[in-house]
């Protein structure tokens, strides 16, 4: 079996008396997108900070691309790209200058800042000071900065939080393009739709612990309940919604009876969302 891109074992971290990350272990395969889902304060950012060398784990160990995150911190950081949760760009510099600065630090030869800016949809605004950019533009530039060194691994901490749909879609496309090029992506988010859409696997993090880790489809299969939502016309006028739970013994007969006896207006199948499943497992929502 190939060596995992990320191998985490018994990782823990506390801020004083507050246990932020509690003995978590997981592996991520090369080229995989793993989504870390959890509400604010669940420990997602602390995991990212430990894996990217911003915090030193108090317990446990982790290997990134086969390198120890504590002992080989700088070598690890040379191979990764990070998009931080908060915007941290040089606002009095242009987008090109921001990218060129990091390209020089990473010693990237023949760096094409304009090409990268075109990819993130900032072509034409490249010489303006970043201070004049919208939040979405800044986030796209952060993404571009994370890609400057063409990293083998991307850490994206809430990359689309509070963004408009256009910027969100641009960033999603960039993540897909990075994985097509073989990059491993560690994505933290509390947007279950985003996680569902982009992640090969998702981990549910609650109070510092991983409470579930699997593909979105298998999680839905394991924890979720599918249903059929049918809108029927009432004899006295008006409409009423009926729900038939799928995957049960009596489901076929119930569907047959409904379609035979009622005048059907609309039919929709419904499956559990990751948020529903998270709530079922932890008893709390993702926005909490």
């Amino acid at each position: 079996m190939a060596q995992p891109a990320i191998a985490v074992k018994d990782l823990s971290y506390s801020y004083g008396d507050i246990l932020a990350v509690d003995d978590i272990s997981f592996d991520v395969a090369e080229g995989e997108v793993i989504g870390f889902l959890g509400p604010n304060g669940a420990g997602k950012s602390t995991v990212v900070k430990m894996l990217t060398g911003q915090l030193t784990p108090q317990n446990g160990s982790a290997l990134l691309l086969g390198m120890d995150i504590v002992k080989e911190r700088k070598q690890v950081q040379q191979e990764i790209g990070i998009s931080f949760e908060s915007t941290n760009l040089y606002e009095q510099m242009s987008a090109v200058e921001n990218l060129d600065l990091f390209a020089k630090l990473y010693k990237v030869s023949d760096f094409d800042a304009m090409g990268l800016l075109e990819k993130v949809g900032l072509g034409g605004r490249e010489k303006e000071h970043v201070a004049s950019y919208s939040k979405g533009m800044k986030q796209r530039l952060m993404m571009a900065r994370a890609l400057v060194s063409d990293p083998k691994m991307l850490f994206l901490d809430e990359p689309t939080d509070g963004l408009d749909p256009v910027s969100t879609e641009t960033i999603h496309a960039l993540i897909r393009a990075a994985t097509q090029n073989g990059a491993t992506v560690f994505l933290t988010t509390h947007d279950m739709v985003e996680a569902d859409k982009l992640s090969d696997r998702v981990a549910f993090l609650n109070q510092g612990r991983i409470v579930a880790l699997d593909t979105p489809a298998r999680l839905k299969q394991r924890f979720g309940m599918r249903a059929l939502k049918v809108e029927v016309e009432l004899p006295e006028g008006g409409a009423e919604e009926r729900e038939i739970t799928l995957d049960e013994d009596q489901t076929p007969q119930a569907v047959f009876d409904l379609f035979k006896n009622e005048r059907i207006l609309t039919v929709h199948s419904e499956e559990a969302t990751l948020e529903d499943i998270f709530f079922d497992i932890t008893g709390r929502g993702l926005q909490g």
Binding site: N88, Y106, S149
Partner: peptide, 14 residues
């Protein structure tokens, strides 16, 4: 305070 230093030192810069 703006976190730009953090962006620098999580790269190759020590």
């Amino acid at each position: 305070e703006n976190g730009t230093a953090r962006a620098l030192i999580t790269g190759p810069l020590r």
